[in-house]
Design a protein around this nucleic acid. Sequence first.
RNA 1: GGCGGCAUAGCCAAGUGGUAAGGCAGGGGUCUGCAAAACCCCUAUGCCCCGGUUCAAAUCCGGUGCCGCCUCCA
Length: 465
Amino acid sequence: MAIHMYNTLTRRKEVFTPLEENRVKMYVCGPTVYNYIHIGNARPAVVFDMVRRYLEYKGYDVEYVSNFTDVDDKIIRAAQDAGEDVFQLAERFIEKYHEDTEALGVREADAHPRVTNTMDEIIEFIEALIEKDYAYEAGGDVYFHTKAFPDYGKLSGQAVDELRSGARIEVGEQKKDPLDFALWKKAKDKEIKWESPWSEGRPGWHIECSAMVKKYLGDTIDIHAGGQDLTFPHHENEVAQSEALTGKQMANYWLHNGYIQIDNEKMSKSLGNFVLVNELIEQHDPKVVRFFILQAHYRHPLNFNQELLESAASGLGRIETFIQNVQHRRKESANLGESEVWLNRMEKYKKRFIDDMDDDFHTANAITTMFEFVKEGNRYLDEANTSTNVLEAMLQLFEEWGRVLGVAFIPEEELLDDEVDTLIQQRKDARENRQFQKADEIRDQLTEKGIILEDTAQGTRWKRG
RNA sequence: GGCGGCAUAGCCAAGUGGUAAGGCAGGGGUCUGCAAAACCCCUAUGCCCCGGUUCAAAUCCGGUGCCGCCUCCA
């Protein structure tokens, strides 16, 4: 089966066909760096990283670009409040973004452009739009003239008249039409600013992405992604700018992730219910947070609270325990040779996982497939005899699944410390002599060191708790 | 008002025309010196409610409720 993905532009699931056969050009709108990222910012980072990984799994060479908005009103305000330099503040939070997302298993993009190092391209872009009469200057500001772009509204599915009735012209703006939006904003007194043909100022929000996409990926890209709230106006405006300039479709597939809610309420500063990633991963394994995000389909709303996260932790633990038990069994049991039945069964699960993922990156169903496999696999582990080939194929399968989902299910195989090894042997001797009190003392001793023992028919296995 | 989404067990969540996946939590059992892990069984005569279409609806249509966007919020 081919990959099907829901395209906001057509409001349908479509078969994915890239521009070039084995190559995918993908752009994901990144954060405005004026604060630590919260769980809601983490969702697009995680789900589109998963999309990238799956495309690679399917054999595509993915070119992945994600920006940082490092100049805008919110950053300027945050810098003023903190008494900090705008550049320093942005730099600080970009570093934090990398730390937090790396913990969540998000791989670095091939390019992470910033507004501040795309300024020339942005200015050129605006000049070209003015030249083509899609934009006009007014009092040092430059606006995009939406009336000049007949397709305006096509991405968000909004009727232009409806939009216009809700739009407003702020005091101090000199737009010809309420729907027009700023490409360049003249600086107020002491604000940070750049030279331009129109005024000393800074770019509007939307133009950066258009300029970056063009600079790094070209006129038309395969996938453009971001949070669902960006559909309008941000992405609509990007489409208008880019397509007005090039006359070509900006992106063939538009992907938008759903919101995360906290206890069924929107996360907002006024409610004070922000959940910051850096605080969250102090209390929980970051892997759990990623697994939690992937347990829902990326377009669906996702509710968050501690209880739900713990539920996800238990589920992930079930998978990890299974893997550890497979590893133990592989070490302890003799090879019985091939097992056609089991190898075939695994092929079926492998295929099912792919079918799940082909269906609009349905990680919720893919994870269900994994759970069902774990159940069957556990039955296999209960059998008196197992085959090394099957056990190794199981580990291989979870290595693949873990790579696609960005969750490492397979722990590094650690060598037993000599000390632990000795103690386990001593306990074994004690048990064989029915000295259970002594055996329990040894187990308690190991428990204190974080080593959990489990006695099975194939010997004692252990894990770090 | 316009656009879009969602309503399924105690909780989370699949399923989008053919008779309710999976996970968490809970109960019972098996295994074990004890434990842990695991396995087996049980937990929605019903998918917000009411109409309609159909041989057949959780799935389609109408209605209702909630939420998001239409404000430089992922």
